[in-house]
């Protein structure tokens, strides 16, 4: 009873803090939780005139429709290809970059390397894809010009041919965010005590061994956390960049779940169907996240929660 009284007293004294929370809570309620309520149209045959409540239930119909379209496997394969390829390339490179940058002795050179490598992160997706389309263009682009100097044909259509699409997508992503993603590791590395390095040096460890046995263990928890988070996004290849990179030639390999949702939902107005696909996507992501988190907690003791 006294505990309740104490809580009530605290709530009364801090009423203003609840008011402070209101704007953010309203925002999250409206734009995050209200759409979650809207998810029930995945199990209904939604038409705008009948509204969410008035539309009839159809059970798992839309999920079955999605799983039985011939494009389902193709889209799933494209999505997994892009995200796994991105993970394999995009996960270790920032770590290597961070370890190397951390090893630069000259402060000015270090600052320069950081400033340059973080920079592409601030280029918008639209401009990035625009740059790619001019730089990689078949006749006039500089990449083809350079390839021609090196004896290539000089008219490769990198942005069009579907066999190049995954590479273009993944490596442009690396170009843009490798530096940015290294920041978190560099931050963790500044916490490594210099004494440990000195001690290892006295024991005769060379630089490579010190990086391996002193630096790497220091950033291991960060690596695990980021790996879990990346795994939780394995099915969510963002539509922003893929959509811009798409053209009629490469859709067989570039159609991913999120762009398919956009096309089904907003271009063809099949609201219930595309909501069901989105829900499928989110549930799988969430389940993977939970499983990986549990695994990681068991193996390494670090986890998101």
């Amino acid at each position: 009873m006294t505990k309740w009284n104490k809580t009530l007293k605290l709530m009364k004294r801090n009423w203003l803090l609840y008011v402070f929370l209101l704007p953010a809570a309203i925002y999250i309620g409206t734009f995050m939780y209200a759409p979650m309520y809207g998810l029930i149209i995945a199990f209904k045959d939604f038409t705008a005139s009948k509204g969410i409540m008035g539309s009839p239930w159809v059970g798992m119909k839309w999920f079955e429709t999605f799983f039985s379209t011939p494009r389902f496997w193709q889209i799933l394969k494209n999505t997994l290809t892009l995200s796994i390829y991105s993970l394999i390339v995009g996960f270790p490179l920032p770590i290597i970059l961070a370890l190397f940058i951390n090893d630069i002795g000259n402060l000015k050179a270090k600052k320069f390397a950081q400033t340059v490598t973080y920079m592409p992160y601030f280029i918008s997706t639209v401009v990035l894809v625009g740059m790619m389309s001019v730089l990689f263009s078949p006749r006039s682009g500089v990449v083809n010009a350079l390839l021609a100097h090196l004896g290539g044909s000089g008219d490769t259509f990198f942005m069009g041919e579907s066999k190049y699409f995954p590479h273009m997508y993944v490596w442009s992503g690396v170009w843009q965010s490798m530096g940015w993603n290294s920041i978190i590791y560099i931050a963790a590395l500044t916490g490594v005590s210099q004494e440990l390095h000195e001690a290892a040096k006295i024991d005769g460890a060379n630089k490579f061994q010190r990086v391996l046995h002193v630096d790497l263990p220091a950033i291991l928890p960060t690596m695990v956390i980021l790996l879990i988070m990346n795994c939780g996004n394995i099915l969510s290849v963002g539509y922003e960049k893929v959509y811009l990179l798409q053209n009629s030639l490469n859709t067989p390999v570039s159609e991913v779940i999120s762009t398919y949702i956009y096309k089904m939902g907003l271009q063809q107005q099949r609201y219930s169907y595309s909501t069901a696909i989105g829900l499928f996507n989110n549930v799988i992501n969430f389940v993977i996240l939970v499983i990986v988190n549990k695994l990681s907690k068991k193996v390494s003791g670090t986890g998101l929660w």
């Binding site: 929370l21 409206t30 759409p35 979650m36 149209i41 909501t275 969430f286």
Partner: peptide
């Protein structure tokens, strides 16, 4: 409140429900 906020980082309604809202 924190839990309710954080949950939205890992699970969302998706594009179409957002559009309808």
């Amino acid at each position: 409140i924190m839990l309710l906020f954080i949950f939205t980082m890992y699970f969302q309604g998706g594009m179409i429900p957002f559009y309808l809202i």
